[in-house]
């Protein structure tokens, strides 16, 4: 219930209507969107029960490892109602053609594989919010100071997922496990995304805001 309340509202990409469509424009729009979503996601993390009790250093380490997984999982959940399209924002939906134009066809297809998986499972909002918190708590940073505290956070969130499934999905006793088993693909996809945006950063043709850059650098 706390995670459902903490879930942020959707945000808008607001692409500049005066700039002609191009790969640079699409990537600039996405990087600006990601930067604003990251601010929102840091605010969200503070509402995960147990997260604010971690040391500031451990909160930072988890976010530095897991931020892209959180961004992608949010795009994936928003895209569940559509076919072969990614809802980066309510006013920014990418189809295959736009993905090609932005040079994001491979990355977006990888994200669509996640969408397909969760669609087939009928992922519910309750499951999505817990899974997203688990992705953060389980982001495998090598810099964690208090591993026991992070383990306790993982246990609480894992327990919440199991309790939810035990009361709502009695017919499938393995559903919690099935959901957890989707996380490797999320990790893999996020790593691809980070790699892609790191090379865009190196190119230097797309303006990026400071928080996005800071977190990309934490991954480099």
């Amino acid at each position: 219930s706390l995670l459902l309340v903490a879930e942020p509202e959707g945000i808008f990409a607001m692409p500049d209507p005066t700039v002609p469509e191009s790969d640079i424009k699409a990537l600039t729009t996405l990087c600006d969107l990601a930067d604003r979503e990251l601010v929102v996601n840091i605010g969200w993390a503070k509402h995960i029960p147990g997260f604010p009790s971690l040391s500031l250093a451990d909160q930072m380490s988890l976010l530095q490892s897991g931020w892209m997984e959180i961004l992608i999982l949010r795009v994936v959940f928003r895209s569940l109602a559509l076919e072969d399209k990614l809802v980066y924002a309510e006013d920014y939906i990418m189809d295959e053609e736009q993905s090609k134009l932005a040079g994001l066809l491979d990355l977006n297809n990888a994200i669509l594989q996640l969408v397909k998986k969760y669609k087939a499972m009928g992922l519910e909002k309750e499951e999505f919010v817990v899974l997203k918190a688990i992705a953060l708590a389980n982001s495998d940073s090598i810099q964690i100071e208090d591993l026991e505290a992070v383990q306790r956070l993982q246990d609480v969130l894992h327990g919440a997922l199991q309790d939810y499934e035990a009361t709502h999905r009695l017919e499938d006793p393995r559903r919690a496990g099935k959901l957890i088993m989707t996380l490797p693909l999320l990790r893999q996809t996020a790593a691809r995304a980070v790699q892609h945006f790191c090379s865009i950063k190196q190119d230097g043709r797309v303006p990026m805001h400071k928080l996005f850059l800071e977190l990309l650098e934490a991954k480099a």
Partner: peptide, 15 residues
């Protein structure tokens, strides 16, 4: 940690 100023600030803000 110096390198991650913005994340640090955002986490410290009470909002």
């Amino acid at each position: 940690k110096e390198k991650h100023k913005i994340l640090h600030q955002l986490l410290q803000n009470s909002t």
